Simulated assay, not measured.
Amino acid sequence: MQTAKTNAQRLLEAKGIEVSIYTYDNEDGAIHGTAVADKIGLPPETVFKTLVAHSGANLYVFVIPVAEELDLKKAAKAAGEKKIEMLPLKDLLKFTGYVRGGCSPVGMKKLYPTFIDESAEIQERIAVSAGKIGLQMEVAPEELAGVVGATFCGLLK
């Protein structure tokens, strides 16, 4: 059971956004997206992962369905960059305040330019990390985009 709310939850609730919380057991170490979707009982196309990429010193956040792969060329185009690379895992906590498997697009240390795959727009609600391994939150995609200033665009391979 969840005890304390995460920053991501608090930020959404402060804006009056309705959030459904899902907890899952991560003792088995299976924290990859499709395992999480299975554990919380939601279709993988409604569960999204948060990826952080960079071009030089510029960081960008990409939110895509868990079973899909980010197309770095499409990501670079969306971000207005020539080339973009995934942020090294060792730098994730330093820049976002989150760890792998618990990275939420909401409540990072800074508000980075954020892009959500356009497939989210056809979903009534999508689940994203609530900022902690073992915790997901479900929210309307438009409301999530509004909070983080995200743009919807095609990001998938």
Rank of each mutant, 00 (worst) to 15 (best):
A30S: 12
A53K: 07
V61C: 12
A75F: 09
V47M: 04
I64W: 05
F48K: 00
F62R: 05
Y60F: 15
L59K: 11
V52N: 03
V61M: 13
K39W: 02
Y22S: 04
E69P: 02
G41A: 06
L72K: 14
A30K: 15
V47E: 06
K49C: 09
V63K: 00
A67E: 15
G56I: 15
G56R: 12
E45W: 05
Y60L: 13
I40M: 07
D38N: 12
V36E: 10
D28N: 11
P65H: 03
K49W: 08
E45S: 07
H32F: 15
L59Q: 10
K39E: 03
E69L: 06
H54M: 09
L42S: 11
L42K: 12
H32T: 07
L51P: 08
D25E: 14
V47S: 06
T46P: 00
I64T: 10
H32L: 15
D71A: 10
E69K: 09
A37R: 06
V47G: 02
D71E: 06
L72Y: 14
V61N: 09
F62Q: 01
P43Y: 03
E69M: 10
H54Y: 11
P44K: 15
F48D: 05
A57R: 12
I64D: 03
D28A: 02
A67W: 09
P43V: 02
L51M: 14
K49A: 08
D28L: 00
K73N: 08
E68V: 02
D25N: 15
E68K: 15
N58G: 08
G41H: 06
A53F: 15
I64Q: 07
D38M: 11
L42I: 06
G33W: 05
L72R: 10
P44E: 12
F62W: 02
D38C: 10
A57S: 14
I64K: 06
T34D: 12
E68M: 13
D71C: 07
V47N: 04
V61L: 10
G41L: 07
K49E: 09
L72G: 04
V63E: 06
V63D: 08
H32G: 07
Y24Q: 11
P65M: 05
K39N: 06
G33V: 04
Y22N: 03
E27K: 14
G29Y: 02
Y22R: 09
G33T: 09
F48W: 07
L72P: 05
P43I: 04
I40A: 04
Y24I: 11
P44I: 13
T46S: 14
K73L: 02
E45Q: 06
Y24G: 14
A30C: 08
A76E: 08
F48V: 01
